[in-house]
Amino acid sequence: MSAQVLREDCDGLCTLTLNRPDKLNALTVEMFQQLHAHLGALEQQQEHIGAVLLRGAGRCFSAGNDLHDIAAGQALPLPHLQARTIDRLARLPQVVIVAVHGHCYTGALELALAGDLIVCSRSASFADTHARWALTPLWGMSQRLPRRIGVARAREMMLLGRRYDGQRAAEMGLANLCFDDAQFETELQALVRELLAGSWFSHRATKRLLEETDGLPLAAGLAHEVFRNAGKGPDMAARIAAFGQASGRTA
């Protein structure tokens, strides 16, 4: 099996790279199998990996599902493999950053929506083209997209199939941040360092709180935060002490 998803670890960051650059990283069953396996390993490595960066090799993030796979009706080794994998990505304990350059269409957009943060280049291009191919969402588009950008804007994207560049994606709230193409890599790496400098314990606890209270009434959500809080992290004392030393004060 060729490596359609590459993994590289460095200083607490795991970078997963979709690796079919000659095919614009079109998503295959094999790619999802490999991604699913990587995510299973990462679930057990939260003390060593603080964040996961998902990106694409070559000219783009991904042009979407491989239409040859769809036409061939390739059997899945696990029922609903793609949807399960995307959900597994969304539920990782680590913060997930999705870096989008070039195309991010349909199935690739469903994959990107599993990220906690979506960062894009100005020339990135986002679209949902299910209707062009007489397909319907199966990997989460109808649920994650409206939760991210609102129902009205999601209807626009899903019904019209229009393309949106990186700047427009950021204005819509689809992307958290948009950087000029020339500065994309520099800004992305700075963002990663900023994120990893925060407490990984706090990041994991925040993700759990947001996930567990999604859709709850305000009163129930507030009660959940108070009574099911993860408490103080093991690095709290060291962080406060370091702050005191750096500022010349005692905490």
Rank of each mutant, 00 (worst) to 15 (best):
Q167K: 09
A241E: 13
Q45F: 03
L210S: 14
A251S: 07
L196P: 02
A75N: 13
G248E: 08
D66G: 00
E225T: 15
V52W: 03
A220R: 15
K232A: 13
L113E: 07
L81A: 00
N176L: 09
R144W: 07
L16W: 02
A71Y: 13
M236E: 05
G73K: 14
R148K: 12
R84N: 09
F201L: 06
A205K: 08
L18E: 04
S125F: 02
L35Q: 00
L135T: 10
A131R: 14
R153E: 07
R208P: 03
I97F: 10
L216R: 10
R228I: 07
F243L: 13
G73E: 14
E194S: 14
P137T: 12
L54A: 01
P77H: 01
P21C: 12
H224R: 13
G12E: 04
L218D: 07
L188C: 05
R155L: 12
H203E: 06
C120L: 05
R88P: 01
L160M: 12
G221K: 12
M157R: 03
E225D: 12
R193Q: 11
R163H: 13
I70S: 09
P21Q: 08
P146D: 05
P79D: 06
L13P: 04
N65F: 11
N19W: 00
S202I: 11
L24A: 04
Q82N: 11
A190T: 10
V226A: 15
H224I: 11
F227V: 14
K232G: 06
G140M: 04
G150S: 05
I70C: 15
Q44W: 01
P79S: 08
I149R: 09
A175H: 06
R163N: 09
R55N: 03
R153P: 02
V151T: 11
H36F: 03
L111V: 04
P79A: 11
R122V: 02
I49S: 03
R20D: 00
R144M: 09
D116H: 11
A71Q: 14
G56Q: 00
W133V: 13
W139Y: 13
V151P: 10
D181Y: 14
G231F: 07
A230V: 07
S121D: 01
D66V: 00
H130M: 13
P217F: 04
C10G: 08
C14L: 03
A230K: 08
D11V: 09
L195W: 06
E47S: 05
R88E: 07
L216C: 10
G73I: 14
M158C: 10
L76V: 09
S121M: 09
Q46P: 02
A170Y: 03
A108Y: 06
G248D: 08
R88K: 03
R153V: 10
F243E: 07
A99P: 00
T136F: 15
H130L: 10
